[in-house]
Each structure stands twice: as C-alpha cells, then as structure tokens.
Design a protein around this nucleic acid. Structure first.
Length: 260
DNA sequence: ATGTCCAAGCTTCTTGGA
C-alpha cells in the first residue's frame, strides 16, 4: 500500500499536475495540503473520476487539507486539532482508511521570526505533539503526514547556515520536531535513507530546482505499530519539473501488506 | 533586498502569503 503527501500549493491552479501525477503513480492514499480553495471549490469531480474518494477541509485563499483514497472508504475521525490556537485555519484532517489512521497536516510556516506567526507555529506544534501522544496511546497504526514546515537536521537543507534564523529551521522548531519523534514516531524517509540528501521542496526563486537548492519539509511519520511494515519510499522529483507545478514534490512511502 | 507564483477583489493591477 502506497501513501503519499503533497503540498499542491493551490488545488485548482495545479489541478492538471495533480491529476497527471495521480494517474501516473496511482497512490492508494493521499494527503493534500495548501488547497487554497473554499470548501465548495474543491475539484471533487475530476478526482473522483480517477477513482478516488475524498474528504477535505477548505478555507478561502489560504491553507486547506484533504485526504484521498482509492482503497476503501474514508471514515473521518476529526478535522482541526484539539485546542487549535486558531480554528479558522484549516490545517488538520484525520480519518481511518484501510485499517490505518491517517492524519494529514499543514503546519504553519511561522515566518517572520520572531513575531505572532512564529508564536502561532510553536503553539500549533505543541497541540500537534499533544494529539500525537493521544494517537500513540490508542496503539492503533497511525501515519502522520504532511507539510511540517520543518527541516529536522542540517542534512535536510541545501545551505544550513543560511537558514538558522528562519522559522523553518529555528532551534525551537527543530526541538519540537525532535520531541515529537521521541514519542516513538519513525521518520519514514530517514529510516530508509539515513544518510542521503533528500529534498521535497524547492523555492520558485533563483532557479532553486535547477540548482537543487532544496529543503526536506514534507514528512511521513509512522507509529510503532505500523513502522515494521515500511518497505520503500521516495520523492517524485519529476513532478516538480512539470509546467505550472507546485514548489513541493509529492513524497511517498510503500507499506508491506494489502490495503485491507 | 532580491527572486516567483497564486488567490482575491471596491479587479485588468495590487496585495499578502509562502
């Protein structure tokens, strides 16, 4: 079973790219972020035509998250984090799909730092850590996937020294990511490739993709009860090279066993 | 400081967010 996360950066503006990727790769379960579309403007029809059921939490102009499945019904378990510091922002959606709890998230960017947006990022991250602990306590197989807006280590940044003051690489934020992992979550791609350079995002500026000046900020975390099924994973870099594409590339994992 | 791209609106350019 393959699960992917993809920050589409505008689900309608990138619809041809999204549909092409879904057709070519046929992931079983997909977490989408940055829909940038109100609830009634999600392109449910074309996605359904490719065989995917979908649930989504839209928002005018900004944010927005969705879950897609072509391997069975989506049983929504929540939208929004418990105690979300600003529930008007659509950043979390969770469902049981094919025997797995999938939490799709779009963690706040947090720039500029310092400032209220950075404070909101830290507060949101704390709420995520609390909820992640509650999910682990159930013992259920859980995948937490999405745009975390965090490069966990220096290996995940093309030029770490340039990013130390940025909200995506600030010590406080990396410490929160480390705290989350210490609960027992496995960072899938790092589990498979401990020492490789892996990027999931390349800025539109300054030919960042051409120079491979990238960041690894999209992550798929596995609870201990499912981590043993991790078989493979990667980044669909070619998608970042298509016309009218997102600044992120889809990131995916393959789990042993059927989509039961 | 810059660079690029998108959505939205008192819209055909401007603005904010990433």
């Amino acid at each position: 079973m393959r699960i992917a996360t993809y920050n589409v950066n505008g689900v309608n503006g990138r619809l041809p790219v999204l549909l092409r990727w879904l057709e070519e790769e046929r992931p079983d379960i997909v977490c989408l972020q940055e829909l940038k579309a109100p609830q009634d403007k999600f392109p449910e029809g074309p996605i359904r035509d490719l065989g995917y059921e979908a649930i989504w939490h839209g928002q005018k102009s900004w944010n927005g998250v969705a879950l897609l499945s072509r391997v069975g019904e989506i049983h929504e378990t929540r939208r929004g984090l418990p105690g979300d510091p600003d529930p008007s922002q659509s950043r979390y959606i969770e469902a049981a799909i094919a025997g797995v709890i999938v939490g799709g998230l779009y963690l706040p960017n947090g720039n500029p730092r310092p400032g209220p947006k950075f404070d909101y990022k830290l507060a949101w991250f704390e709420r995520l850590i609390d909820h992640a602990a509650a999910l682990l306590a159930t013992g259920a197989p859980v995948v937490l996937a999405g745009d975390f807006n965090v490069m966990p280590t220096e290996r995940d940044v093309y030029k770490p020294e340039r990013w130390t003051d940025d909200a995506l690489f600030a010590p406080e934020v990396r410490a929160l990511y480390a705290r989350l992992l210490e609960q027992g979550w496995a960072d899938s791609l790092r589990r498979i490739y401990p020492d490789e350079t892996i990027y999931t995002f390349w800025d539109y500026f300054r030919n960042a993709f051409g120079r491979d000046a990238g960041l690894r900020i999209d992550h798929l975390l596995l609870s201990p009860s499912i981590a043993g099924r991790l078989k493979n994973g990667g980044v669909a870099r070619q998608v970042r090279g298509w016309e009218k594409t997102s600044d992120h590339a889809p990131t995916w994992i393959e789990l042993n066993g059927p989509a039961s």
